[in-house]
Amino acid sequence: MNHFRRKLFPAIGLATLFALILASCGESRQPFVGTYKSDEIVAGKGHIQLTLKDTGEAEWSWVEEGRTAKFKWRVQDGRIWLYTKEGAIVIVTPSQDGQHLSADMTGDWQEGCPTDKCISFTRHK
């Protein structure tokens, strides 16, 4: 009995850790994988193309400028979290079954996407 109890406690500890790691893994990216294009020309410099890959990699390209930034992304609570190399978080709210994305450029979490800091995208591919 003692032997069993001796093993039980560390086992509970490891199971707790495993559950916590699993819980922090996030949701499936699959529904949002694809290429999106900004609805409007941004700052007179052209459209932004957002590519979300199923590997968790993503690209943010200014097509006409020929500039591309790479970053990581994941899904949490149905919203897309983009992580820039510098450590900023862009929270993107999908709508219309993932056909439409609204990127909040304030860098904070908010219920919606503030209109003056919001870039809208539509699924392209």
Binding site: V42, K45, W60, T84, E86, G107
Partner: peptide, 16 residues
Amino acid sequence: FQVVFFDLMSPMFQFK
């Protein structure tokens, strides 16, 4: 110009 968004938004910063 939020430096943390520089990679994403530098063309916009230039435009401004």
